[in-house]
């Protein structure tokens, strides 16, 4: 569709813009340039340029206004040796544990809701809606929910658990991180479920019939038909949940008053380092470490899933199109 019609007279010498533009190849060039230039510019401006600067600054001792010179790897050493920074990795482990529960639940509900069940739309809606709620609002909802003698304690009281035996959900350092992680599971479980059920619905239904004829029970159907065909989405979600567990922000920031009582996540600490303590170099080193951790996790994920699904029939996988 893009070839120049050979019958068309090729103008010689100077061409007017109109003539030049009438040549499809030239027109294409103009369209490509004008349509791609702004998005690509924004991508560079808000992702790649800051990324480069971030790496550069991580080697300097600097604030937003002053640069106190090159310090080599000192910022990186600080990330791993300063107690308050290192402690946040431990907090992230709670969120990762939560993510495992979240993905398992999402997978379970996506599977059972993909078979015929009454009130599917209601269940799906009830589980998904939390994902759409404003993060600050969620913070308040759960502050209210966890307050001593409020919603959670009252509800547990109905099941005969006396108030005296319950901890202070947000103050007690042995449970407060779990309380916060629960809010994150509450928010994201339904979203994961919708992603998984979308992938499950794209599975060819004849595969279930074929499996049933071969004598497969529900578990076999799940293991050999559903799981392989959603491996792409599953991998993606595991990666996203690792990213999320390090950069969890709203639960500790709103519910637990900016990460007090040992609830600060890596990202909260990074935010404080940059915008409260103004140690921009150190914050950049933290960001670089974050990106590296995510890259490593992504690679490990890919390897594990490649191994786990090595026997899966390739024909059940959705054809990969587009990006990636």
């Amino acid at each position: 569709m893009s070839t120049v019609n050979p019958a068309m007279p090729q103008p010689r010498g100077r061409k007017t813009f109109r003539e030049w533009f009438a040549v499809p190849k030239n027109q294409q060039r103009v369209v490509i340039f004008t349509f791609a230039v702004v998005p690509v510019f924004l991508l560079i401006m808000f992702t790649y340029y800051p990324f480069m600067r971030m790496i550069e600054w991580s080697f300097y001792n600097m604030s937003y206004t002053k640069n106190r010179g090159f310090v080599g790897l000192k910022n990186y050493l600080d990330v791993f040796t300063r107690d308050e920074l290192f402690a946040t990795f431990r907090v992230s482990l709670y969120y990762m544990a939560g993510a495992v529960v979240q993905i398992a639940l999402a997978l379970y509900f996506a599977t059972i809701l993909s078979f015929k069940t009454k009130f599917t739309a209601f269940y799906k809606g009830a589980m998904f809606f939390p994902f759409l709620i404003n993060g600050i609002a969620i913070g308040f909802i759960f502050k209210f929910f966890y307050t001593r003698g409020h919603v959670l304690d009252t509800t547990l009281g109905f099941f005969g658990i006396p108030l005296e035996s319950l901890p202070y959900w947000l103050r007690d350092t042995s449970v407060n991180n779990w309380s916060l992680v629960a809010t994150s599971v509450w928010k994201y479980m339904g979203q994961n479920m919708v992603l998984f059920s979308g992938a499950i619905m794209s599975v060819d239904t004849t595969l279930y019939e074929a499996a049933a004829i071969d004598g497969a029970n529900k578990w076999h159907q799940f293991r050999y038909v559903i799981l392989p065909s959603i491996s792409t989405v599953l991998t993606l979600n595991v990666i996203l949940s690792i990213t999320g567990s390090l950069s969890a922000f709203e639960p500790p920031y709103v519910i637990a008053a900016m990460g007090s009582n040992g609830t600060a996540t890596y990202f909260i600490q990074m935010h404080q380092t940059a915008h409260v303590q103004h140690k921009v170099g150190l914050a950049c080193a933290m960001a670089v470490v974050l990106v590296l951790i995510i890259c490593i996790c992504t690679l490990i994920q890919k390897l594990i899933f490649k191994y786990a699904f090595r026997n899966a029939g390739t024909d059940t996988k959705p054809a990969k199109k587009g990006v990636l």
């Binding site: 990324f51 971030m54 990213t243």
Partner: peptide, 26 residues
């Protein structure tokens, strides 16, 4: 190249770059 650049960008959490973006914006 553009496709890959966008895919790669989705792996880098936007929040990580906040520090440098803030400086650039100011």
């Amino acid at each position: 190249l553009i496709r890959h650049a966008f895919t790669l960008a989705s792996l880098i959490p936007g929040l990580a770059m906040q520090v440098t973006i803030y400086k650039m914006m100011s």
